[in-house]
Simulated scan of single mutants.
Amino acid sequence: MHSVALAVADGTPLFELAAACEVFGTDRGLADPWYALTICGPDDDAEVGGWLRAGVRHGLDTLATADTVIVPSIRDVDDPPHTGLVDAVRAAHEGGARVVSLCTGAFVLAAAGLLDGRRATTHWAHTALLAARHPRVRVDPDVLYIDDGRVLTSAGKAAGMDLCLHIVRTDHGAAVANTLARTLVVPPHRPGGQAQFIPAPLAQSREPVLADLLAWVSARLDQPLTVQDLARQANMSSRNLARHFHAVTGTSPLRWLLTQRVHRAQELLETTDAGIESIAVRTGMGTATTLRRHFHRLLGVPPEAYRRTFRSTGPPARSG
């Protein structure tokens, strides 16, 4: 069973802490085994969210034995992070743990030296401070989360949930992550990018026209849609559509469409025995060659390797 240690210090805000507990702390029977969540901290009776008392039964030394360590937001970015927490997070990483920060938890990772030379993010309101305080960190204020292998960081609030779901997707596959998202009534995937999964913002819109268009496209991924088809459906010019799309999704209509096709291919690889040619047709990519090219470009592995990985029983535990 993959062990997850959640580090809770006195004054930890509630939102990101609750998101991690909802994702990793409740076994809904989606994968066997699920995660084993442990709450750790320097205080036996930490206050979280400014009003709730959280009983912490495990000390910070437990972080060193976890497969994944999650550091949620800290109380105040103007105060130095808890020294014991910084040391424990550093030791866990040196021992081979995957270390994750949600929102301003990035300041703990930075203080531990884990972000030096890495691309990282935090809540947009604090990215300038993180960059000024830790000049060796390549702070990116424009993304929701960054997966750099064994070190992952997210922006604030809802982006913390996005990163938690991304971790489930990485460990258990798209089908499990999407089912969990539906259970939690949150968007199933704010998609990652290239090999390090640098994500674009959510492909959803509060503008009714674009929201309706995205739903229309998602129901027709098996069809050979073009940007002109999307513009016609939205009753816009292609240029106007591109402007709206970039404002809402952070990317172009064509890139968004290709990403959705790859996501659909992920689900079909996990949940069906369909061949690659059949999946290429069902996702609108036409041929196995086209599917393999885009799949490998976005996810870094060929479809066949992805299917073998996510037909397995769960995330690997840390060795040693």
Rank of each mutant, 00 (worst) to 15 (best):
H244F: 12
V209K: 12
L180M: 08
V281T: 15
R264C: 05
T272S: 15
V176E: 08
S278M: 08
Q196E: 04
T179E: 15
A234H: 04
S252V: 01
V209R: 15
G192M: 02
R239V: 15
L258K: 04
Q194I: 08
A219N: 05
S218G: 13
P187S: 13
W216D: 02
Q194G: 07
R220E: 12
A280E: 01
R220K: 10
N240D: 09
T271V: 14
E207V: 11
W216N: 09
V281M: 10
P224L: 03
R206W: 07
T271M: 12
L202M: 08
D212R: 13
P191F: 02
H244K: 15
S238V: 07
Q228P: 01
P201M: 09
L221V: 07
S205D: 09
T179M: 12
Q228A: 14
A234C: 09
A203G: 05
A265R: 05
A215N: 11
L257R: 02
D229P: 05
E207L: 11
Q233C: 06
P253L: 12
R261F: 14
A175S: 12
L269W: 02
P208E: 06
A195V: 15
R182Y: 14
V186D: 07
V217H: 01
D229F: 14
R243T: 10
Q266K: 08
M236D: 08
F197I: 04
R206V: 11
H189T: 07
R206A: 11
L258A: 03
W216K: 12
T249W: 00
L180T: 05
L268I: 09
P187V: 09
G193T: 01
F197C: 09
S218P: 01
R206S: 07
A247E: 07
V185C: 13
L214P: 08
T183F: 15
A219P: 04
T271N: 11
S238P: 12
F245D: 01
R239T: 10
L257T: 03
A231H: 13
Q204N: 02
A200M: 09
A265Y: 02
P253V: 06
F197R: 14
P208L: 04
D229L: 04
D222T: 08
A175M: 04
T251H: 00
E207M: 15
D273T: 14
A242Y: 05
L268W: 06
A181C: 10
A242I: 01
A177Q: 08
P224N: 11
E267V: 10
I198H: 08
W256R: 10
D212N: 13
A242E: 10
N235E: 13
R190N: 07
Q204L: 07
T226V: 06
V186A: 07
F245E: 00
S205H: 07
L214Y: 13
Q204H: 00
V217P: 00
P201S: 11
L258E: 03
